[in-house]
Every structure is written in structure tokens, then in C-alpha cells.
């Protein structure tokens, strides 16, 4: 009985944590005013929020007396892929020059996203980048 009760309380706690973090992610997505700062809220807070929901699902299955661990797979997958999608979106922002641009790197010539062939450089440095999107 105590295990089930503990699982119920754990589910309660994890559901609350997940709800708070997904809400923070959504608020950050709407509130912040620069494409790069906007990237900070959803990619991490939403991942942690959904992670908490998945853990809640796991502890709920223990509360029902049919323990399962396979939610951990989805959790691991989300945590592995979140940085990659964030990186791609940051690259898109750099490519479209939608944010403040960083200085050139000290050790190398330039950042790889901005490293376009010499002939295309004039088009690429216009405000909205090449007309792909």
C-alpha cells in the first residue's frame, strides 16, 4: 500500500512540475523579443516539462501496480534530439540574419553557417538572406 501511495504523490509532484515548465516555455516563447533569446525558453523548459510528464506516467503505472520503464526511452530520445533541433534553429536564425550578429571568431576565418562561397556572399549579406524561405 505504501508503495502505491508514494507513487501517487510522486505522480502529483511530477505533474505539477511538468505543468509549470511547459507553461514557462510557452510564456517565454511569446514574451521574449529576439529570435535567439526566444530559443532559450522552449527548447529546454519544454523538454524538461515533457520529461516530467513522462516520469509522471511512469510513476502512475507503479501506482496502478503495473510498473513500466519504457517511458525512459522517449525521455532519452527527447533529451538527445532537443540540442540538435535547437542548433539547427539557431543556424537558421544566423543564416537569415534575424538576430544580432556575432563577431567573427578569433581563431578562424568565420562561423561555418556564414561561410558561403565567394560568389554568393553579396546576396547572403543582405538583410533577409537569400530567398529560400
Amino acid at each position: 500500500m505504501t508503495l502505491e501511495l508514494f507513487a501517487v504523490y510522486a505522480t502529483l509532484f511530477l505533474l505539477s512540475v511538468g505543468a509549470v515548465f511547459t507553461l514557462v516555455a510557452a510564456i517565454g516563447l511569446v514574451k521574449l523579443n529576439d529570435p535567439m533569446t526566444r530559443l532559450h525558453a522552449p527548447t529546454k523548459a519544454a523538454t524538461v516539462g515533457i520529461g516530467a510528464f513522462l516520469l509522471a506516467s511512469m510513476s502512475h503505472s507503479f501506482a496502478l501496480g503495473q510498473g513500466s520503464f519504457h517511458e525512459l526511452l522517449v525521455l532519452a530520445f527527447l533529451f538527445v534530439t532537443a540540442p540538435i533541433s535547437a542548433n539547427f534553429i539557431a543556424k537558421v536564425n544566423l543564416h537569415k540574419r534575424a538576430c544580432d550578429m556575432p563577431d567573427a571568431p578569433k581563431h578562424d576565418e568565420m562561423w561555418s553557417t556564414l561561410d558561403v562561397p565567394e560568389s554568393d556572399r553579396k546576396i547572403a549579406t543582405e538583410k533577409n538572406g537569400p530567398a529560400t524561405g
Binding site: A26, P42, A46, I50, A56, S57, L78
Partner: peptide, 23 residues
């Protein structure tokens, strides 16, 4: 206002949809 924001919004929506299914 830019493509990056739209991709980010879609990505967030997919993640939230996963959360809804889990719930």
C-alpha cells in the same frame, strides 16, 4: 516574424502534443 521563430513554434507544438498524449 521570421522563419526561425515559426520552426521553433512548430517544434514546441510537437513537444506539447507529445505531452498531451502522455497525459
Amino acid at each position: 516574424p521570421d522563419t526561425g521563430d515559426r520552426i521553433l513554434a512548430l517544434d514546441t507544438m510537437v513537444i506539447n502534443a507529445i505531452g498531451l498524449i502522455v497525459l
